[in-house]
């Protein structure tokens, strides 16, 4: 039995030398910390093949959902930093860290690049009387703490309405609806009044099943020219869910460089913006240096926000 570890070590060394010879020589696991079919999953299932082309290896999307996206984050953090595990991140990593849901933060990873940005939209149930953002605000001022908002508590869909709350000086009542799909069901059935959504729900808005009240981008989007921005309405909130790729800290330089180059090539692929449009998402590429700065700024903003909302646990 003593021979086994030795043989194993030998095999491992052999495998390691092979791996160094030609990275990637086996499929790379891209951990998406959310269920399949969600926005993040859909975006990366579109992006992975484009990145693959430049990388010359296979990327397999592995959904590790659960616990507000922190289960996958933990899994990615504890994976061997060999370049064969990468992590699909979005802004919730900061908020779940500061609200104390998880111990994983972006500093446990090496940035690869930022891929996309999805502006948030204030969305109302068709059973509500509001015709636009103004009537919502008036109603909210008249009935503080009575308008129900569905949200994944402590995550982006909670932070966004909370920012609107602060900027407009109103008060909502939050009800836990984790995930976009259950939130949209509840909006349709009139079980909640408001929720954050994005352009992926445009079809339902066009069919009158949902009402888009205002968008949190800096200017109106051509897809929904009739939806005003919050800024136009005097609410100084700009919010989007930003998605990027990270690798576990300690990933070899050579592998990182290859991944970064492939990510850049994938994001610049001519077909990518068109494909993303279908998912209500804008392509937003940032190189590793710019992405690092972005993460730092985002992290600070989230910390401040958590503090202002009374949710800061660290």
């Amino acid at each position: 039995m003593k021979a086994l570890p030795i043989i194993a070590a030998g095999l491992a060394a052999l495998a390691a030398s092979l791996a160094q010879a030609q990275y990637p020589d086996r499929p790379i696991k891209l951990i998406v910390p959310w269920a399949a079919g969600g926005d993040t999953d859909v975006i990366y299932r579109t992006f992975a093949p484009l990145m693959q082309k430049a990388l010359g290896g296979t990327i397999v999307v592995a959904n590790v959902g659960g616990a507000s996206g922190t289960k996958g984050a933990k899994e990615a953090q504890s994976s061997p930093p060999d370049g064969y595990t990468i992590f699909a991140v979005h802004d919730s990593i900061h908020s779940t860290y500061y609200t104390g849901v998880a111990d994983v933060n972006y500093t446990d990873f090496e940035p690869i690049c930022l891929v996309s940005s999805t502006p948030s939209i204030v969305t109302a149930s068709p059973k509500t009387p509001w015709t636009d953002m103004k009537s919502l605000l008036a109603d909210a001022k008249a009935r503080p703490g009575q308008i129900t908002v569905g949200a994944t508590l402590g995550s982006t869909s909670h932070f966004f309405p909370a920012m609107v709350e602060q900027a407009a000086g109103i008060k909502f009542k939050y009800v836990s609806y984790e995930g976009t799909a259950p939130r949209m069901n509840a909006l349709l059935g009139g079980h909640i009044d408001l929720a954050e959504s994005n352009l992926t729900q445009k079809g339902k808005a066009d069919a009158g099943q949902l009402k888009f009240l205002a968008i949190a981008s800096d200017k109106r989007l051509p897809e929904v020219p009739n939806v005003p921005t919050l800024k136009e309405l005097g609410i100084d909130v700009e919010y989007a869910v930003n998605r990027g790729l990270l690798a576990p800290k300690g990933t070899p330089r050579a592998a990182l460089d290859k991944l970064r180059a492939a990510c850049a090539a994938g994001a610049r692929d001519a077909g990518f913006p068109e494909a993303m449009k279908k998912h209500g998402t804008l392509v937003r590429y940032l190189d590793p240096a710019a992405y690092t700065a972005f993460l730092q700024r985002n992290d600070k903003e989230n910390k401040d926000l958590a503090k202002e909302l009374g949710m800061l646990k660290r």
Binding site: P5, A8, A9, L11, A12, L14, A15, A16, A19, P27, K29, V60, A62, P80
Partner: peptide, 17 residues
Amino acid sequence: FERYLQVLLPRGSWTGF
């Protein structure tokens, strides 16, 4: 599973195989 169904199976940390 790995070749045709894109389902990754556990790799050995001792063996890398």
